[in-house]
Design a protein around this nucleic acid. Structure first.
Length: 418
DNA sequence: TCTGGGGTCCTAGGACCC
DNA sequence: TCTGGGGTCCTAGGACCC
């Protein structure tokens, strides 16, 4: 076998303007029109249709700054609806898994695959078929980049997206030098703004320059991950396909409030609500926690910024919302200060495990009963409606809730695509 | 008036110990 | 009078990703 045959081949499948594409499934009137999707709290732009990109709307811009511009240009504005996006994302991954074994669900709208054997021999045809299948089955357009390493597949994907003539698929293999020469160092996967600035200061402006950098210089300026990137650009595989998702290290639920909160009661209700969501998410992932922390912050854009956090360790691993609510309240009491307008709060669960770790002989029965209660609550909320059952500590009015003015009224169960 | 949320990893620096 | 140095652990904060 020649050395060439031993080389790996990866593809990155990336959904085009994913959130916008999802919204278009529910509302075809949005097709061919400029559309943007807003972050939680309608804070900033997190997805744009191609038409919106053409208008020069940038990613991450705060909504209030360009509201008038959007209106003038008749851009459709939509609040994000993550339930729907997650549902479509699962379908997207399932289609890929039905066609090939080696799949890594990398993010909500991206998957890496490793092409081996017959798939490698017919890589382009296979990817073309996959792209067509995804569109036929769930109506989401994707772009696919192919390369010898994940980093090169990422580069190829950007090229596929940018260049219309390629019809959404590009294989960089054999053309690395020519392409990397035109590829801005800032656009390389895992090279962020600050590293890019540092590199540009050294005269390294494109990906080809970076691939030729001295190893020890790369490590010194970019750290160990940067050196990995350099090798990957040279076509040397350092980052493997991660088919099995490792156990999550933390679960975070945090939100900015719709308005500043000055009183303890309202803040406590918010923190309790986030705790209940975090506990529910943890049970969904079949995990238990041993550490809970709460943080609160005032508005960082205003004077007298205050932020603080407190942490509590449980005596044993738990997934019991009652215990989590108690702990969250204790943490909040440690850090709450009067006369501050709070803008944001969050709850973090750490030290997660998937082992069933119960307490001692005397507490086991009680814990078992609580488990069953939690299961029942989760089931009711799933079957009847969200928040059909909730904890008194979360409050009834939820006055602090974030803004969401432009939500589409669809839910995931409404659409049947396959 | 309005400025996202969720996640991981690395590093620098302090505390502590021998 | 004189005040080392290396290891480990922890944490906060930065950088990066989507």
């Amino acid at each position: 076998m020649s050395l060439e045959n031993c080389e790996s081949l990866f593809a990155l499948i990336d959904c085009n303007n994913f959130y916008v594409s999802c919204e278009r499934l529910y509302n075809p009137a949005l097709l061919y029109k400029p559309v943007v999707v807003l972050s939680n709290n309608d804070g900033c732009i997190i997805a744009r249709s191609n038409e919106a990109k053409k208008l020069g709307i940038k990613m991450g811009v705060s909504y209030f700054q360009i509201r008038d511009f959007l209106k003038k240009n008749k851009v459709a504005v939509i609040s994000s609806n993550y339930e729907i996006y997650e549902d479509i994302s699962k379908r997207f991954i399932n289609i890929i898994k039905s066609k090939i074994c080696f799949v890594e669900a990398y993010s909500i709208d991206e998957a890496f695959i490793e092409l081996k054997g017959i798939f490698k021999k017919r890589s382009f045809e296979f990817c073309k078929g996959l792209k067509e299948d995804i569109y036929r089955l769930i109506g989401i357009p994707v772009s696919i980049g192919i390369g010898r390493t994940k980093t090169l597949a990422k580069v190829a994907n950007k090229i596929a997206k940018k260049n219309k003539d390629l019809n959404g698929i590009f294989d960089i293999t054999g053309r690395e030098e020519e392409i990397l020469k035109t590829f801005d160092v800032e656009d390389i996967w895992r090279i962020g703004k600050s590293k890019a600035n540092c590199l540009k200061g050294m005269g390294i402006t494109n990906a080809l320059n970076l691939s030729k950098i001295d190893n020890s210089l790369a490590q010194k300026t970019l750290g160990i991950n940067g050196l990995t990137t350099v090798f990957e650009l040279r076509g040397i595989k350092c980052i493997n396909l991660q088919e099995k998702k490792p156990i999550q290290k933390e679960i975070i639920v945090s939100r900015s409030f719709g308005h500043d909160i000055g009183n303890y009661k309202e803040l406590k209700e918010g923190v309790s609500h986030f705790s209940a969501i975090a506990a529910k998410n943890m049970r969904n992932l079949n995990l238990y926690t041993k550490t809970l922390s709460v943080f609160i912050t005032s508005n960082p854009f205003k004077d007298g910024f205050y932020t603080n956090q407190a942490e509590i360790n449980f005596d044993f691993y738990t997934r019991d919302t009652f215990l989590i609510l108690q702990a969250a309240e204790k943490c909040l009491n440690k850090i709450f200060k009067e006369n501050i307008k709070y803008k944001k709060a969050g709850v973090i669960l750490r030290n997660l495990t998937n082992c069933v770790c119960l307490g001692n002989l005397f507490t086991n029965l009680e814990i078992e009963n609580k488990h069953n209660l939690m299961k029942a609550i989760d089931l009711l909320n799933k079957k009847i409606k969200k928040d059909a059952v909730f904890f008194a500590a979360e409050g009834v009015n939820k006055l602090w809730q974030a803004k969401k003015e432009y939500t589409s009224n669809y839910n995931a169960s409404e659409i049947i695509l396959i």
